[in-house]
Nucleic acid binder design. Structure first.
Lengths: 203, 203
DNA sequence: TGTACATCAGTGAACGCGCGTTCACTGATGTAC
DNA sequence: TGTACATCAGTGAACGCGCGTTCACTGATGTAC
């Protein structure tokens, strides 16, 4: 990989290193010097690419949100074969991301990066959220006119339900509370009951 | 407070200091030396009370879970005037705790403490969870026999919904996504729809 | 009630360590002509 | 095609700093008798 005096791809290498370090020691364990070491480069080199540790973390988080958005969009598959089934797939994709990419997930939600501060970061986070909103919109459209909830509210419900399950039960990296069902099944049941509640006449 | 050579109440003072530091800089910013300084004591003194930083954090988290459990139990008020209303109150209490005690909340859920590892910690966390379970049990008992969901499942649904909302929108300390309704209203709506879904005939 | 002694909680000085950051530098790459 | 030069990416040495941790110590508290 390293081909001489110039690294050639140091920025990528630093991000890779950051992911590995986060996976190993948590977002708090990420250190600028450590990332340089892991990339096989002097401790001053990272400053060519990132202002500081915070900027590196923000970049990792940004990539994470992009990947999450892509995963959700891919799972949606334009709502085939029908919006409800596709929405369940989106939910599973969220949990799959949290489990499969714990380092990204930690950088995005547990590292203390301020998502609102960095416009680029905010934008990709917004896009990932938009992927869920798209799915919710299509599901809402299938409901009888009198039973259609506000799209934003329902999106927030689904997102936070998935996020809560992922945070509490969805990662393998820590000894979470053991539950007698998979996070995927737990989320699917919640969404099923929720959707049934939307169709039901209001009490 | 300080009355001479002996502090008299150093353990409490260290926990107070830890809370202030967490509130100010996040759980990652908590340092053993800093806590000693804030308590007005030499850097070696904390070792009389905590094995290391991790133990201090675990103690803070433990108190947090005890307080949360108490807040939830108090909000429940034996299910008066009826279980459903009381359950909504419990949900609001959860959000209120997350907002009102962000330092405890961070220590409990975002500090990397392994809840499963420490038996005392696990036990109070279990107790807090049990407060929600108690509420859910009573609500389930009000449902028609054919519509009663497994209590554990429903408890996990409610807990993770509240936790997701609290984590994403419920704290003032960071610039979270602004939403056009309060976290409390958002949670109440979700629970209402969920409960309606339980009563509705399965599709 | 007083005295001797054990126990305990906090001291302060010291240390090694690793991190963040800076600096003048140098090797490599690209570009103008 | 070749040459001169600007730009860029990474070096390595150095620094100050604060943290974690240990240590022999000492002031205070409690207790046995």
């Amino acid at each position: 990989m390293r081909r001489g005096y110039h690294h050639g791809n140091l920025k990528e290498a630093l991000i890779e290193a950051a992911l590995a370090l986060i996976a190993e020691k948590g977002p708090g364990g990420l250190t600028f010097a450590d990332a340089a070491r892991a990339a096989g480069v002097s401790p001053a080199a990272p400053y060519r690419h990132f202002r500081d540790r915070e900027a590196l973390l923000a970049d990792v988080a940004q990539r994470g949100f992009r990947l999450l958005g892509e995963a959700l969009t891919k799972a949606w598959q334009d709502g085939r074969p029908d919006p409800t089934q596709a929405l369940h797939r989106v939910g599973r994709a969220y949990l799959g991301f949290a489990r499969g990419e714990p380092a990204y997930y930690a950088a995005m939600f547990e590292s203390g990066v301020d998502i609102g501060a960095d416009p680029a970061l905010r934008s990709v986070a917004e896009a990932a959220f938009g992927a869920v909103r798209t799915a919710v919109e299509a599901v809402v459209a299938t409901l009888p006119p009198g039973a259609q909830p506000p799209v934003l509210m329902m999106t927030l419900h689904i997102w936070s339900q998935a996020h809560g399950i992922a945070s509490l039960f969805g990662r393998a990296d820590r000894a979470r509370r053991p539950i007698p069902m998979s996070p995927e099944d737990l989320l699917e049941a919640a969404v099923l009951i929720y959707l049934r509640g939307l169709r039901a006449p209001k009490a």
